[in-house]
């Protein structure tokens, strides 16, 4: 699917051209955004250390094999690796933690492996459902969230199934 390779350069040129036309002080604004990015990356470091260590211990100890045996019926049914099932659960809870897990999968299996592609698709196709619901409602003092959480869970499950399906189909 190299048809999408042009997309990023295209968007970058669009943004810069649009900025020039509208007389944005491009470099200063860019630096300002990049600074926010750097701070975000720094805030991410503790999450990364925590996740890398936890996943590292879990994998090296042989616990994955034990868990795979326990979850075998479900994994057999969906035909997916255990790591990605886990990733999709973490995805709904914590964005930085899920990013850390995805990078861990990239490092272990490679970004262009089936696992790497499935992890990318899972990460890209949904958002940190529980975190967003908590923050957004919390910010305005809404305590009764009514049906927001069941809808979120349904959508997350749909995204998991759709990701597994499409990655198998596209990269078979």
């Amino acid at each position: 699917m190299s048809a999408f390779s042009w997309l990023i350069p295209f968007i970058i040129s669009m943004v810069f051209l649009h900025g020039l036309i509208n007389k944005v002080r491009i470099f200063e604004v860019f630096v300002q955004g990049a600074r926010e990015g750097l701070l975000l990356a720094i805030r991410l470091i503790p999450y990364l250390v925590g996740i890398y260590v936890a996943v590292g211990i879990f994998r090296e100890s042989g616990a994955v094999e034990i868990m795979v045996k326990a979850l075998y019926p479900l994994i057999e049914l969906l035909q997916v690796p255990a790591d990605t099932l886990f990733l999709s659960i973490v995805r709904s809870l914590s964005g930085p933690a899920a990013l850390g897990m995805m990078m861990e999968i990239f490092d272990t299996y490679g970004p262009d492996s089936f696992m790497g592609r499935l992890a990318s698709t899972l990460m890209g196709s949904t958002d940190t459902t529980f975190y967003i619901i908590a923050i957004y409602f919390g910010s305005v003092g809404v305590r009764k969230t009514r049906y927001a959480i069941p809808v979120g869970i349904l959508a997350d499950s749909a995204s998991f199934l759709a990701s597994v399906y499409i990655v198998k189909k596209m990269f078979a």
């Binding site: 699917m1 997309l7 970004p111 790497g116 196709s125 990701s163 596209m170």
Partner: peptide, 17 residues
């Protein structure tokens, strides 16, 4: 992470999302 074609998953992500 050293992917040969980092944007190859765009279509899959679009479909799933």
């Amino acid at each position: 992470a050293g992917s040969k074609n980092p944007s190859e998953v765009v279509g899959a992500i679009l479909f799933a999302s």
